[in-house]
Amino acid sequence: MVTLSINGQRVEVEQDTTVLEAAATIGIKIPTFCHDPRLKPHGSCRICVVEVNGGKNLPTACVTPVYEGMEVETEGEEVVTARKEILDLLLADHPLECLTCEKAGECTLQDLCYQYGIERTSYDGERNHYEIDYSNDFYYSDQNKCIKCGKCVMVCDQLQETHAIGFAERGFETHIATPMERGLSESTCVSCGNCVSVCPVDALAPKKKTKFRYWETEKVRTTCSYCGVGCQMDLLVKDNKVVEVQPAEGVNDRMLCVKGKFAFDFLSHPNRLKMPLIRKDGRLQEASWEEAYDTIIGKINSIKEENGPGAFAGLTSARCSTEDNYMMQKFMRAAIGTNSVDHCARL
């Protein structure tokens, strides 16, 4: 164990803990853009710089390991000056379109500029201009807004292992691009959207089908309904509609695939069944629940009387909940009296 002090508070942590992690254990939040505990240390954005033992240079909290007797100041004068300067520099090449920006409300750059009181950039220099890449079906890449934290590239390389995007050019012209700048639709991208989920700004963002502001939504934690991995995710709900899906901590380690991330349209699809249907005159026609129940019960009773419980079978579903499945087999076994329950586990 190592003992250090952060903003005058003593804290004891394991060896090899970073300053960022140590600070978090006592509730001290240090701002970050490029940090993600799942990724290899990157240290590119420099926003998490802190002062250590009054030293001259400002190391970044995200990659600096603690040591015995370390004294850290996370909001000292030098640190705040550096952070403000970094935000100023980022804004100098970032369009101030916050009023209409889709990311507003969930934008780390916006949040930190608010926190450190940066209203606008003090520089009036050159800006980069990029074409927005809309070629992917689910998300766009707007490099004009990119702050080059590199998380998207690292997620694609280190976690998703698809290697669809990387850094292009260097220096001030550095930006995120597909090989040969051929566009997302021509890349190896599998539209998993894991880059989108980590982007701190509106540089990689989902193509919204519904207009919404993040603060208008409620997040509901749930389990993905596609394959058997059981990814954890948050449904963002506005006005009784799921408008976005974000990955959550769980077996999936905050990763999703294209289906989990983007394929939720079916929920609000107009073709959803809304009323019971009963076949009358060879045609399925809308009916009330009472009518439907009566029809089913009537049929069950008559078949049972004539043929006994052996004439019934039920197919439960690998798609429905555990509780739904339990109730169906109970219905077949306890109420009808047959063990003829199966489902498509084998398909």
């Binding site: 058997g228 439960t316 690998a318 555990t322 087999q329 329950v341 586990a345």
Partner: peptide, 21 residues
């Protein structure tokens, strides 16, 4: 690797002709 979101749960719950939950 189970193919569907709750194929495990359906099996666990006796969605099979020879076993109860």
């Amino acid at each position: 690797l189970r193919g569907q979101n709750n194929v495990q749960g359906a099996c666990d719950m006796g969605g099979l002709p020879n076993v109860y939950p």
